[in-house]
Amino acid sequence: MELHKNPDNPLLVPSTAAASTKGRTLRKTNAALWFLLPSLVILAIFTFYPMIMTAIESLFSTNVRGELAQFVGFSNYAEIFSDPLFLKSLVNTFIFVITAGLGTIALALFLASMVSDKLRGNGFFRTAFASTMGISGAVASVLFLFLFNPSVGVIGLLLKNIGVKQNNLVADPTGAMIILVVVSIWMGTGFSFLNLLGALQSVPDDYYAVADLAGWSSWQKTWKITVPMVSPTLFFLLVVEIIGKFKTFTEIDLITGGGPDNATNFIAYKVYTDAFGNRNFGIAASEALVLTAIIAFATWFQFRFTERKVYYK
C-alpha cells in the first residue's frame, strides 16, 4: 500500500483526531509485554537495581580495596551532615545553581526579546544565539580556560590591564565560582533562548492590538500581557535549568578540579571524587542519595505544575 507516501492526504487524515488513548485501543492484547520488555529489562538493570544498590551501599563502610567492609547503619549520613566539607559543598552548589540558573534565563529572555519581532535579519541572529545549545561541557571548558588564562587569555590579560592583582581567577575561590557560572550560563542560554522565543512568538498579535486600542502603555503591555503569557515557560525553564545545573560535572572536572579550597566542589563532583578518587563508596553513595532527593523533588515539582502544558498540550 502506498499510504505512507502521503500521510498528509486529506482523505486519510480527518481534521478532528480524537485524543483519548482508550478510544483508540480496539482490542486487548498481551503483545504489550513484548513491546515493553526490552526497555523494562534495561531500566531494571541500569536504573532500578543501581538505585537500590546505592541505597544499600550508603549503609556500609568501604575498605581500601573498594569492597563493602561493614554495615554501619546511618552513620555515613551522620558523617556527611556533620562534615563541614559536605555542608560547604551543599551551600556552594545552591549558590551556583541559583546564580547560574537565574542568569541563564535572564540572558535568554533578554536575547529572545531582542529578536522576537519579525524584523529582517533576525533569523540569522536567532541561529547565532541558539548555537551554544549543543556545545559540550568539555569543549566549553577548554575554550574558557583559554579565555581566563592569566598570562595568555583575553579576559585574563584584560583583568591584568585594569589592575586586578590576582588575575588568575581559577586560583581564587570567588573567581573560580564566577568562571563556572559564566560557562554554565553561556552553555545553557541556547536552549532557554529557543524556548522563550517560541513562547514570545506564540502570544497572539491580537492581544497587543486590543491593548493598543485601549491605550495601554508598553509597560502595561509587558506586565499584563507578555509576562503572564510566558510565565509558564519561564517556570518550566527555571526548574529544568536548576535540575541540569545540579548535575554540573564536566566543567568542574576540567576547569577547577573542585578547588580552590573546595569552593567549587559541588555535590555531583564530590560524589565522583569520593567514589572514584577516594574509593569511599559508602560515603559517596549517601551523598548521591542526597543529590537524588534534591533532584527528585525538583522534578516532581516540575511534573506537578507543568505536566499538562508540556506533555499534553
Partner: peptide, 13 residues
C-alpha cells in the same frame, strides 16, 4: 609569588 591555583591545568600553566 604567582598562585596557579588548582584544576587540571594548574601544573601545565
Amino acid at each position: 609569588f604567582q598562585n596557579f591555583g588548582t584544576g587540571s591545568s594548574a601544573s601545565a600553566n
